[in-house]
Amino acid sequence: MDLLLSILILTLIIAMLRENDSLRLVVYFTGFSLLMSALYFLYHAYDVALAEIAIGSAILPLIFIIAIGKQKTFVVISRVKDDFMNEEENSPGQTLLRGFAHRYGLKTEIHFEGQTRLKGAFRRRNADLMVIKSRRDGKYIFLMKSSSVLHYKMQRIVEGHRNLRFEVVEEDQIYD
């Protein structure tokens, strides 16, 4: 019986190693910890089995799934609301951003906010990108965190457009 369980656990581990999709990985991990707790039970380690079954199959998958869901969205905060960027999906700014996010397998989420509120470098909503309008030359500025992985790629896209500019902000810098 314990040999059968060990073989099952080994196959699950190999399946986990060869898996690319994160959500399936979490499901495999849940099955792995269930089988592990059964094995602990067979070896008379009841205390460890209780802890493993509650942590490994309920709490850790929840945390992982929330983290994965958070990672897959591309959050944009826009302070501009005119022809370039508005609530309609086919406005040029939204098409650009949605196309960019779609290329990297992300889901886009755009929030519109008023001009008056000051805030730190996007920390409150964990936004990835912020759109504002420059007062001097009327260009639209795309702001991204310097810690973001995607900001080089975004910069390359923005350089092709004439009415856009790209800027990088540090983590705790306040932009008004």
Partner: peptide, 14 residues
Amino acid sequence: SPGGGFQGGVILAT
């Protein structure tokens, strides 16, 4: 019996 503070606490959290 098997169990203890940590295990029971985790079950309460679940």
